[in-house]
Simulated scan of single mutants.
Amino acid sequence: MDGRESLSPLNPVPPFAVALFLVILGVEVMFTLGARGLAGGPDAVGWRSAAIQDYGFNSAIMAWMIENRAWPVEHLRRFVSYAFVHGSFTHALFAGALLLAMGKFLSAVFRHWAVLALFLISTVAGAVVYGLVIEGQPWLIGAFPGVYGLIGGFTYVMWLRLGQLGTNQARAFTLIGVLMGLQLVFGLFFGGNGTWVADVAGFAAGFLASFVLSPGGFAKLRARIRHD
């Protein structure tokens, strides 16, 4: 860690996190106004469905690209664009709020560009694993895989600190355990479609990427590899 490690609540939210939040919220406001007939005319009712078709991700798309060994830009962009399309205003607001909270925490430890990289890496990793594991065509949408990647970064920071204090480092995984437990409960009561796979993949990608993206992380990793 370096001098950026200050967890004061006065640490500002990084500009990129604010920008992502505003994009997510802006897209959702557009969908909501269109669905209520307040913008866009009669065709606006279908904006959300059209956006899911055009920017969402599913395993059928992944299978087609692998089978045909073709990687058109219109499909490659889906590995990131799905994060900006949500199923409802509540879905978008909750994801955006977590994005701001995790972005603010991590920006006190990581460089801002590294936090953004964590989000993007986890977003892509979530789509890749989802596309390889989940069968059928349930759409993957929403920023949660990327947000779970930031939670992976948070877990990495807690894991290091608990190690420095000589306490049980497994406690660092409490937050992700609680979140996945809640997902399991909601899935049992309201049904699930396997998107939790993308969330877990995003978390794992964020946690592992933190070993390299944290301040001095690459040098520490290289030194450990050489030592081993």
Rank of each mutant, 00 (worst) to 15 (best):
64 W>I: 08
73 V>T: 11
103 G>R: 11
90 T>Q: 11
91 H>N: 12
77 R>W: 06
89 F>Y: 11
75 H>G: 00
67 E>M: 11
64 W>P: 05
66 I>L: 15
67 E>Q: 15
79 F>K: 00
61 I>R: 06
91 H>K: 09
89 F>R: 13
69 R>A: 15
90 T>Y: 07
63 A>C: 09
92 A>I: 04
69 R>V: 12
99 L>E: 03
84 F>L: 09
92 A>N: 01
64 W>Q: 14
64 W>H: 12
73 V>S: 04
72 P>T: 06
71 W>M: 12
96 G>F: 01
71 W>Q: 03
62 M>K: 03
89 F>M: 13
66 I>H: 04
61 I>S: 06
89 F>D: 07
80 V>E: 01
96 G>A: 08
87 G>P: 02
89 F>L: 14
90 T>I: 14
98 L>W: 02
69 R>I: 10
101 A>T: 13
94 F>A: 15
94 F>C: 14
69 R>F: 11
86 H>L: 08
81 S>Y: 02
66 I>V: 15
69 R>E: 15
91 H>E: 07
87 G>W: 00
97 A>M: 06
61 I>F: 08
68 N>H: 14
84 F>Q: 10
83 A>D: 02
78 R>N: 00
95 A>C: 13
65 M>A: 11
91 H>S: 13
80 V>N: 00
62 M>C: 09
69 R>L: 14
95 A>K: 03
100 L>T: 09
81 S>G: 04
68 N>E: 14
103 G>P: 01
74 E>T: 08
88 S>W: 02
98 L>D: 01
76 L>M: 14
93 L>N: 06
70 A>P: 00
84 F>M: 05
98 L>C: 12
